[in-house]
Design a binder for these strands. Structure first.
Lengths: 124, 124
DNA sequence: GATACTGTACTAATTAAATTAGTACACTTT
DNA sequence: AAAGTGTACTAATTTAATTAGTACAGTATC
């Protein structure tokens, strides 16, 4: 389900979070799906259960999953998921835009970067 | 010239780099200006000279400054600076755009975020 | 040449954060 | 009761950033 990139110097729990978010948002993990248990996921990735626990805990805090003691961790509702992730991306986008403007780039220049980079995804 | 934010959990050398980049690109530090020596900057910020050395070394590697042994570190040419920073930001922008598209956002939606956020900077 | 700056390189010690290790306890299902 | 689940907690380890200290080379000035 997940594979780790050890070249990446970000913390493991963060990589796990990002990968799970992607799978959830894309629909590979539908809403209310039960995620692998903390222990089994740890075995699968050959890392410590505490690290998974941390990832799950953060994901729950952010609203991506919900957990039921004794039962497991489950994917949150689809609508919720998409909104959460879109908000995250918009946040990032705004940060970059502000940085670009500090450099004196005008909106039209920024937008042209988007258009020039984007090819063939419009009708997807 | 620089002040550190200890709440920020990014490495100090990275904060120093970003702040200097900003000062250089904005023009507060014109091209060929001599930067504070490794040792004096360290005293000013109450941190270790090695940390400044690392920041300067990285800045040179990235092309923002050039150093002359025995003389000091100096701000690179203006044209160079702006291009470097703009490339950085465009890189970041493209990453965010790609993430946004994965979520199914169309270019028009992304662009509308930019326009809605940007107010009053068009004529700056 | 001597002095006092500058950059640069290097090793060792310290600090802080992530990760691991191990244990314990509560809840659910069978 | 047994076997799974989540959760909390402390302690040890590992890793990266930072500090500490020293050394050496180039520049400028006297």
């Amino acid at each position: 389900m997940i594979s780790l990139n050890f070249k990446d110097k970000r913390p493991i729990y963060e990589q796990v979070m990002d990968r799970l978010k992607e799978l959830m948002v894309v629909g590979a993990l539908p809403e209310n799906t039960q995620l692998p248990s903390v222990r089994s996921m740890a075995v699968e990735l050959s890392i410590n259960p505490n690290t998974i626990q941390r990832a799950y805990g953060e994901l729950e805090r952010q609203g991506y999953i919900y957990s039921i003691k004794g039962k497991g961790n489950f994917v949150a509702e689809n609508e919720r998921l998409r909104d959460l992730k879109i908000d995250e991306v918009k946040e990032k986008l705004i940060e970059v835009i502000e940085e670009a403007r500090k450099l004196g780039l005008r909106d039209e220049e920024i937008i042209s970067v988007i258009r020039q980079h984007g090819e063939g995804r419009e009708r997807a």
